[in-house]
Protein backbone atom coordinates (compact mmCIF):
# COMPACT_ATOMS: atom_id res chain seq x y z
CA UNK A 1 0.00 0.00 0.00
CA UNK A 2 1.39 3.43 -0.94
CA UNK A 3 1.76 6.34 1.49
CA UNK A 4 -1.07 8.19 -0.19
CA UNK A 5 -3.46 5.28 0.28
CA UNK A 6 -2.49 5.04 3.96
CA UNK A 7 -3.16 8.75 4.52
CA UNK A 8 -6.40 8.99 2.54
CA UNK A 9 -9.13 6.61 3.67
CA UNK A 10 -11.20 4.90 0.97
CA UNK A 11 -14.05 7.21 0.00
CA UNK A 12 -17.02 6.82 -2.28
CA UNK A 13 -16.93 8.06 -5.86
CA UNK A 14 -18.57 11.43 -5.22
CA UNK A 15 -17.59 12.96 -8.57
CA UNK A 16 -19.41 10.29 -10.55
CA UNK A 17 -22.43 10.58 -8.27
CA UNK A 18 -22.63 14.30 -9.01
CA UNK A 19 -22.09 13.81 -12.76
CA UNK A 20 -24.71 11.04 -12.97
CA UNK A 21 -27.18 13.19 -11.05
CA UNK A 22 -26.45 16.07 -13.42
CA UNK A 23 -26.89 13.80 -16.45
CA UNK A 24 -30.23 12.62 -15.09
CA UNK A 25 -31.43 16.21 -14.74
CA UNK A 26 -30.19 17.02 -18.24
CA UNK A 27 -32.06 14.00 -19.62
CA UNK A 28 -35.24 15.29 -17.98
CA UNK A 29 -34.85 18.83 -19.31
CA UNK A 30 -33.46 18.21 -22.83
CA UNK A 31 -36.65 16.95 -24.56
CA UNK A 32 -38.70 19.82 -23.19
CA UNK A 33 -36.17 22.52 -24.13
CA UNK A 34 -35.56 20.94 -27.55
CA UNK A 35 -39.31 20.88 -28.20
CA UNK A 36 -39.82 24.52 -27.23
CA UNK A 37 -36.76 25.78 -29.14
CA UNK A 38 -37.64 23.52 -32.09
CA UNK A 39 -41.13 24.98 -32.32
CA UNK A 40 -39.66 28.48 -32.18
CA UNK A 41 -36.66 28.18 -34.55
CA UNK A 42 -37.03 24.86 -36.37
CA UNK A 43 -35.48 21.37 -36.25
CA UNK A 44 -31.90 22.65 -36.60
CA UNK A 45 -32.28 24.57 -33.36
CA UNK A 46 -33.80 21.55 -31.59
CA UNK A 47 -30.83 19.47 -32.74
CA UNK A 48 -28.49 22.22 -31.51
CA UNK A 49 -30.03 22.00 -28.03
CA UNK A 50 -29.63 18.22 -27.97
CA UNK A 51 -25.99 18.43 -29.16
CA UNK A 52 -25.09 21.21 -26.71
CA UNK A 53 -26.60 19.49 -23.67
CA UNK A 54 -25.08 16.17 -24.78
CA UNK A 55 -21.67 17.82 -25.02
CA UNK A 56 -22.09 19.31 -21.55
CA UNK A 57 -23.12 16.03 -19.98
CA UNK A 58 -20.29 14.20 -21.76
CA UNK A 59 -17.83 16.80 -20.45
CA UNK A 60 -19.11 16.41 -16.88
CA UNK A 61 -19.04 12.60 -17.02
CA UNK A 62 -15.53 12.53 -18.46
CA UNK A 63 -14.30 15.05 -15.90
CA UNK A 64 -15.90 13.10 -13.04
CA UNK A 65 -14.47 9.81 -14.25
CA UNK A 66 -10.92 11.20 -14.57
CA UNK A 67 -10.98 13.03 -11.21
CA UNK A 68 -12.66 10.16 -9.36
CA UNK A 69 -10.24 7.60 -10.76
CA UNK A 70 -7.17 9.66 -9.85
CA UNK A 71 -8.49 10.57 -6.40
CA UNK A 72 -9.05 6.90 -5.61
CA UNK A 73 -5.87 5.55 -7.17
CA UNK A 74 -3.30 8.20 -6.25
CA UNK A 75 -4.41 11.53 -4.74
CA UNK A 76 -0.87 12.84 -5.13
CA UNK A 77 -1.45 13.09 -8.86
CA UNK A 78 -4.71 15.02 -8.45
CA UNK A 79 -3.20 18.44 -9.11
CA UNK A 80 -1.44 17.60 -12.36
CA UNK A 81 -4.14 15.35 -13.74
CA UNK A 82 -6.85 17.95 -13.06
CA UNK A 83 -5.00 20.62 -15.03
CA UNK A 84 -4.16 18.27 -17.90
CA UNK A 85 -7.75 17.01 -17.91
CA UNK A 86 -8.93 20.63 -18.15
CA UNK A 87 -6.71 21.29 -21.17
CA UNK A 88 -7.63 17.96 -22.78
CA UNK A 89 -11.37 18.51 -22.36
CA UNK A 90 -11.06 22.09 -23.61
CA UNK A 91 -9.37 20.83 -26.77
CA UNK A 92 -12.02 18.11 -27.11
CA UNK A 93 -14.88 20.61 -26.75
CA UNK A 94 -13.23 22.94 -29.27
CA UNK A 95 -12.72 20.15 -31.81
CA UNK A 96 -16.27 18.83 -31.41
CA UNK A 97 -17.72 22.36 -31.49
CA UNK A 98 -15.77 23.30 -34.61
CA UNK A 99 -16.71 19.98 -36.22
CA UNK A 100 -20.39 20.69 -35.59
CA UNK A 101 -19.94 24.22 -36.99
CA UNK A 102 -18.10 23.01 -40.11
CA UNK A 103 -20.65 20.29 -40.81
CA UNK A 104 -23.36 22.95 -40.56
CA UNK A 105 -25.67 20.46 -38.88
CA UNK A 106 -27.22 22.74 -36.32
CA UNK A 107 -28.27 26.30 -35.59
CA UNK A 108 -24.88 27.59 -34.39
CA UNK A 109 -26.02 30.59 -32.24
CA UNK A 110 -28.57 28.37 -30.47
CA UNK A 111 -25.85 25.76 -29.88
CA UNK A 112 -23.52 28.36 -28.33
CA UNK A 113 -26.18 29.99 -26.16
CA UNK A 114 -27.48 26.60 -24.98
CA UNK A 115 -23.92 25.58 -24.12
CA UNK A 116 -23.48 28.53 -21.78
CA UNK A 117 -26.95 28.75 -20.27
CA UNK A 118 -27.29 24.96 -19.98
CA UNK A 119 -23.93 24.72 -18.23
CA UNK A 120 -24.85 27.29 -15.60
CA UNK A 121 -28.41 26.05 -15.09
CA UNK A 122 -27.34 22.41 -14.65
CA UNK A 123 -24.46 23.37 -12.38
CA UNK A 124 -26.50 25.66 -10.14
CA UNK A 125 -29.28 23.07 -9.99
CA UNK A 126 -26.78 20.41 -8.98
CA UNK A 127 -25.04 22.69 -6.49
CA UNK A 128 -28.35 23.42 -4.82
CA UNK A 129 -29.04 19.70 -4.56
CA UNK A 130 -25.53 18.94 -3.28
CA UNK A 131 -25.67 21.65 -0.64
CA UNK A 132 -28.92 20.16 0.65
CA UNK A 133 -28.19 16.47 0.50
CA UNK A 134 -25.12 14.88 -1.09
CA UNK A 135 -22.29 16.70 0.68
CA UNK A 136 -24.10 17.34 3.94
CA UNK A 137 -26.90 14.80 4.40
CA UNK A 138 -27.39 15.99 7.96
CA UNK A 139 -28.38 19.45 6.78
CA UNK A 140 -31.26 18.27 4.62
CA UNK A 141 -34.42 19.17 6.52
CA UNK A 142 -36.79 16.29 7.04
CA UNK A 143 -40.53 17.03 6.82
CA UNK A 144 -41.01 15.47 10.25
CA UNK A 145 -38.48 17.85 11.84
CA UNK A 146 -40.04 20.87 10.17
CA UNK A 147 -43.47 20.20 11.63
CA UNK A 148 -42.23 19.30 15.09
Amino acid sequence: MSDAQEIFPPVEDVESQIARDLARRAALVTPLVALVIGLWRGPDAALAVVFALGLLVGNFLLSAWILGYVARQNPGLLMGVTLFSFVFRLILITVIGLGIKELDLVDWPVFCITLIIGYFVLLVWEMRSVSFSLASPGLKPKPKEIWE
Binding site: V11, V14, I18, L67, I93, I116, F120, S136
Partner: peptide
Protein backbone atom coordinates in the same frame (compact mmCIF):
# COMPACT_ATOMS: atom_id res chain seq x y z
CA UNK B 1 -12.02 14.14 1.73
CA UNK B 2 -15.44 13.14 0.35
CA UNK B 3 -16.94 16.53 1.16
CA UNK B 4 -13.82 18.37 0.01
CA UNK B 5 -13.82 16.50 -3.32
CA UNK B 6 -17.51 17.24 -3.84
CA UNK B 7 -16.93 20.95 -3.33
CA UNK B 8 -13.75 20.79 -5.41
CA UNK B 9 -15.53 19.16 -8.34
CA UNK B 10 -18.24 21.81 -8.37
CA UNK B 11 -15.64 24.57 -8.02
CA UNK B 12 -13.68 23.20 -10.97
CA UNK B 13 -16.87 23.03 -13.03
CA UNK B 14 -17.66 26.68 -12.26
CA UNK B 15 -14.12 27.77 -13.14
CA UNK B 16 -14.34 25.86 -16.43
CA UNK B 17 -17.47 27.77 -17.33
CA UNK B 18 -15.25 30.81 -17.99
CA UNK B 19 -13.26 28.88 -20.58
CA UNK B 20 -16.51 27.73 -22.16
CA UNK B 21 -17.68 31.35 -22.37
CA UNK B 22 -14.38 32.18 -24.07
CA UNK B 23 -14.97 29.40 -26.61
CA UNK B 24 -18.49 30.56 -27.34
Amino acid sequence: SGTVRTTMFLGIAFAEALALIGFV
